[in-house]
Design a binder for these strands. Structure first.
Length: 780
RNA sequence: GAGUCUAUAGCUCAGUUGGUUAGAGCGCAUCGUUGACAUCGAUGAGGUCAGAGGUUCGAGCCCUCUUAGACUCACCA
């Protein structure tokens, strides 16, 4: 054996496991019943990484799942850990557009088919890297069951589920106010908006007979009412009246409405109502049947209804409007220290512009109720338990889910419109000579053929009342025209990943009875391990889809782990320059060192502080294991050189009588180490069963280094062959206990032992979980 | 505004139903090791477990309040 453990052998060890096919799940075919608790299906679906993502510490935390899988494999369970990767809709398109930008191009230079293919190729190259890196981290995933979210069978199922939702009356189109990012060019769900406290200005302006306070003077062109509180004695005489407001581009008239939404204490107790560009005002508009007047376009600029302000961006317009109001004496005062919350795009950080536009929604109530009940009944358990409350609170207040995104990277919604029946459909397309054309079909049909429009199509926007067909008709069922176009909106990524456990296990939404054997055997899965940040995005959606489609939850336990942060408790980010790259750490210190550092001394769901120092410390631990093993084998060498016939008797004496058997004599040092080892087996098992990985790893570290190496091995240096059985017994038992955490060094050592001792279990990864030597110790 | 979490040695953190002198890694000090160990071993310094009060025979752990951070959710212009 080399003088020190060399991580460069890790890829060979991984190949050894792969060649023995130990990670491939076998349905109901267990090699042997290895322990009382073993022999059951145990499955984990990997929280699918984004296909375009380079590996970071978040991925390295899959170690937790690997520990569980390897532990259960040793228990004798039929283990499936199913890997995959996600096309990650907006995330990927965002990265790709940045790349285009560097090349001096933009997405508007291409038709959607071309753009889609370009992103596809971009993702394919990265997907391979991702897989290679996961193997480097030793993850015992079943690569024969790897899936990608855009593979044809999965997309087919997604579309079938959409049709089922539609058939069940749970899908609808509606013109609602949505969170629109003018920079990303798409709407988002409520979850994708970050609200940031910011200090801005609050403008007090003359507004007909009133003075009112607003943060958004530039939207006044879209006002269709002004509101006061019905109890406010100051304004009683105006309620129901129509007032005239000087609008900078000429006077306009609005109605004064009374609504409880108005806080009499705030500002002057008067609020201008802009239903087209504010969520609250939109709601008020519904209550009072107000007109919706759009004055901001999807490009983030004021439109033709704003006179001289048309073409200005929102912030430019605000500045100009304020200047003009000041000049004309309409501006009363400005509070420039007004603190409030501004919604920003979680992706690009630009201010979210609430917009009224047609979108696709899923009615969520009938999906959420069973999911809520499942959490409350404990059908899905949460660990740590506090996340259950967070989950149920959210599920009780859930709103309809906007599933449509105005991007190209993802499956398009399976809905088709007839252009001839609905010439009011708005089109964007690029002609063969690379000109971008925008307009209503009714205005364009004379100059452009259907074929040119279809092949160059970038996006379309159909009025909310447009008839659609969810099965592609060859011609319009109403008018017989063949001029049909498919909706250009794509699915929210989470609509796909919400069905991930079902799709990867071979569930057939069209006919559940035709689902694959994997589904029958491994569903519901055992554990879902993830970070809390996607509890609502992903976990909630999976539970809803699982119950809705398959009638059962997708996993029995949700295990929430924390974020990896740096030594100072800061989130790792490129801009802070505090990112520790897991791949380079494995190259420097070995994968095992990194893995152990990620779980050692970490409390459940507490932030995981990682530093190169910590990884180095655990590299030393890994090396300690290597050298202790080397010492024991050298001891064997020495003894065998003087006694070639030396045989090791592995029938260790029990230190308490088993079944009334008499106690045997044991050297006090032997007795002590065996008793402590038994306690270690019991505590490690207990901690793994309760997801206390930090404590499990600490116990193993303490025992191996300070009990076994410092005390026991030191004490046997002067002893002869009588010490060998217990030396090997303790070593092998420790290798098994440590293997889930640090698979490479333990397997590497174990292979040496197999070569020297001819052990019956030839591979540690599929050996057996230890039970206490003393029959009276018990493992829960 | 509602809710949740965190506060333990210089630094990063463990401490699972309350029980004897509160632990680890890194760092620090002294000594020893070069035939298991990119070292390793031995010994040591260092904490009124955020503050105050309470329950208890007994509290880092349970309860209340205070202070300081972090996070989640929420439509106030």
């Amino acid at each position: 054996m080399d003088k020190a453990y060399t991580p460069s052998s890790e890829p060979d060890i991984y190949k050894l496991w792969e060649s023995a096919d130990v990670f491939t799940a076998k349905i109901g075919k267990l090699s042997k019943a290895k322990s009382a608790s073993g022999g059951k299906p145990y499955s984990i679906i990997l929280p699918l990484p984004n296909a375009n993502d380079p590996m970071h510490m978040g991925h390295a935390l899959f170690t937790i799942q690997d520990i569980l899988c390897r532990y259960h494999r040793l228990l004798g369970d039929s283990v499936l850990w199913l890997p995959g990767s996600d096309h990650a809709g907006i995330e990927t398109q965002f990265v790709f557009e940045k790349k285009l930008q560097k090349e001096g191009k933009s997405r508007f230079d291409f038709d959607r088919e071309t753009l889609y293919r370009m992103i596809w190729d971009f993702v394919e190259t990265n997907r391979e890297i991702n897989i290679k890196q996961m193997k480097q981290l030793g993850f015992s995933m079943d690569w024969t069951r790897y899936h990608y979210s855009l593979e044809p069978a999965i997309v087919k199922n997604i579309l079938a589920v959409f049709k089922k939702l539609h058939h069940d009356g749970l899908v609808y189109r509606a013109e609602k106010i949505v969170n629109y990012c003018t920079h990303c060019g798409t709407a988002f769900s409520n979850l994708e908006v970050d609200y940031v406290d910011e200090v801005t200005s609050l403008y007090y302006m003359k507004y007909g007979p009133f003075t009112l306070a607003t943060t958004r003077p530039e939207t006044k062109f879209g006002d269709t009412a002004v509101a006061v509180n019905p109890k406010d004695t100051r304004y009683q005489q105006y309620i129901g009246q129509e007032i005239t407001v000087d609008g900078l581009i000429g006077p306009f008239k609005v109605k004064v409405i009374a609504d409880d939404m108005v806080d009499m204490q705030f500002g002057t107790g008067v609020v201008k109502i802009t239903p087209a560009h504010d969520p609250d005002d939109f709601e008020a508009g519904l209550r009072h049947h107000l007109a919706i007047k759009r004055v901001i376009g999807f490009d983030g600029r004021l439109n033709e209804l704003t006179g001289k302000y048309a073409g200005l961006t929102v912030s430019q317009a605000r500045q100009k409007v304020v200047e003009d109001m000041k000049a004309s004496g309409m501006l009363i005062k400005v509070d420039d220290q007004y603190q409030h919350r501004i919604g920003r795009c979680y992706k690009c950080k630009h201010v979210i512009e609430p917009m009224v536009m047609p979108q696709w929604f899923v009615k969520i109530d009938s999906l959420a109720k069973p999911a809520l009940a499942a959490a409350q009944k404990g059908q899905v358990k949460f660990f740590p338990l506090r996340f259950k409350k967070q989950f149920t609170d959210w599920m009780q207040n859930i709103r309809d889910w906007n599933i449509s995104r105005q991007i190209v990277w993802g499956p398009r919604l399976p809905a088709w419109y007839c252009l001839e029946c609905h010439p009011g459909i708005k089109l964007n397309f690029i002609t063969p000579d690379k000109t971008v054309v925008t307009g209503l079909y009714s205005d364009l049909k004379a100059n452009y053929s259907y074929e040119v429009i279809k092949s160059g199509l970038q996006s379309l926007s159909a009025p909310v009342d447009t008839t659609y067909y969810v099965d592609e008709p060859s011609s319009c069922p109403k008018c017989g025209s063949s001029h049909l176009l498919q909706e250009t909106d794509t699915f929210d990524t989470w609509f796909l990943s919400g069905q991930w456990p079902l799709n990867t296990l071979g569930f057939n939404p069209a006919d559940p009875s035709q689902s694959s054997p994997d589904f029958a055997y491994f569903y519901p899965t055992s554990v879902l391990d993830t970070l809390w940040d996607i509890l609502f995005f992903w976990v909630a959606r999976m539970i809803m889809f699982g119950l809705y489609l398959a009638g059962d939850v997708p996993f029995k336990t949700v295990h929430i782990h924390a974020r990896v942060v740096d030594k100072a408790g800061q989130k790792m980010s490129k801009s802070k320059g505090n990112v520790i790259d897991p791949v380079s750490m494995t190259q420097t210190y070995g994968t095992d060192a990194l893995r152990f550092a990620l779980v050692y001394g970490v409390a459940p769901a507490a932030d995981i502080a990682i530093s190169e120092d910590k990884i180095r410390a655990h590299r030393n631990f890994v090396n300690k294991i290597w050298n202790a093993s080397r010492f024991i084998l050298m001891k064997l060498d020495q003894l065998q050189s003087s006694n070639p016939d030396l045989k090791i008797n592995f029938n260790l004496p029990l230190f308490k009588g088993r079944n009334g058997e008499a106690e045997r004599d044991l050297n006090p040092a032997d007795l002590a180490i065996l008793q402590k080892l038994d306690a270690l087996i019991v505590s490690t098992t207990k901690h793994l069963n309760s997801y206390h990985f930090g404590q499990a790893s600490e116990g193993l570290y303490q025992f191996f280094w300070h009990e076994f190496c410092d005390i026991y091995i030191e004490s046997v240096k002067s002893r002869g062959e009588d010490a060998l059985p217990i030396l090997f017994y303790v070593l092998i038992t420790c290798l098994k206990l440590l293997h889930p955490f640090i698979p490479f060094v333990t397997e590497s050592v174990y292979q040496q032992l197999v070569a020297r001792l001819g052990l019956s279990e030839k591979m540690l990864a599929v050996s057996s979980w230890p039970t206490p030597h003393d029959s009276k110790s018990s493992v829960k």
